[in-house]
Amino acid sequence: MLNYALNRVLTLVPTLLAASFLVFMFIHLIPGDPASILLGDTATPEEVAELSRELGLDEPLWTQYVLWLGNVLQGDLGTSVFFREPVLSVIADGAETSVLLATMTMFWIVVFGVPIGIISAIRHGSWVDQATSGGAMLFASVPTFWLGLYLILIFSVGLGWFPSSGFPSLADEGGASNLRYLVLPSLTLAAPNAALIIRLIRASMLDVSREDHVRTARAKGLHPVRVAIRHVFRNALIAVSAAFGFTFAALVSEAVVTETVFSLPGIGRLVVQSILRRDYPVIQGVILIIVVFYMAINLLVDLAYASLDPRVSLK
């Protein structure tokens, strides 16, 4: 297992290199000169040229890339043009919000998605199943911003149970109780994803329940619930584990909308703002980190897959 993991990590190196190259090139193809945008309309061409030189923008693109890559390998993602701070610390500021938001979202997805998925598979065709399938369909198709606004309207403006925007750090006054700021955003993010997981668990369990070995399990005289969990769900989990990984990865992009709706100081919002500000070192840094994150999720999914299915050999 460990060997397999190490091997996989090594094979990621060329992929990562290619990805970093694409990220870099892509950002530099965005129209608009960062230096003139930063200085505003009133800047003289001389001032713009001066700043360009300072930022290294006058070098050929490939030189810029090699320099950037060299710095990245040493853990230096550059300096934010807008904040005039190291990119890494700008990202770290947003990371707390985003990581907590993602974790809480995954928590809801597991807590709601897994049991409801199992129940609707066990009771497929019943009114319970029809109600959850209908609900899942609804939540899967509702746009995130719409759901977010409705949750704010009901639970924040109407009932006053949860705050509607912002997120003070856990280190600030209020401590762990500040997590309540993330309840509505995480529910917003969780709803469509939980709906997908419910439908996926239901479909995979129905597939597995038609397999021969389930008939064998029933022939032992096992209770139907035991058959459903230990035999059907356990096998369905192999297919579902991959979806969990990709759901988590997809949260990254969905978080952009949610963080905007709820004015959360997270990475999603940082990306949007940095694009508007042409703060390309930050954009590059965030995208690079997201790429690494995706690859890590991919690796974890493969490892989970291998540990759930003994037929997958770890070569």
Binding site: E211, H213, T216, A217, N235, I238, D309
Partner: peptide
């Protein structure tokens, strides 16, 4: 079906 009658996991 001996090939598929046992639980693979």
């Amino acid at each position: 079906e001996p090939m598929t009658s046992l639980n693979p996991v």
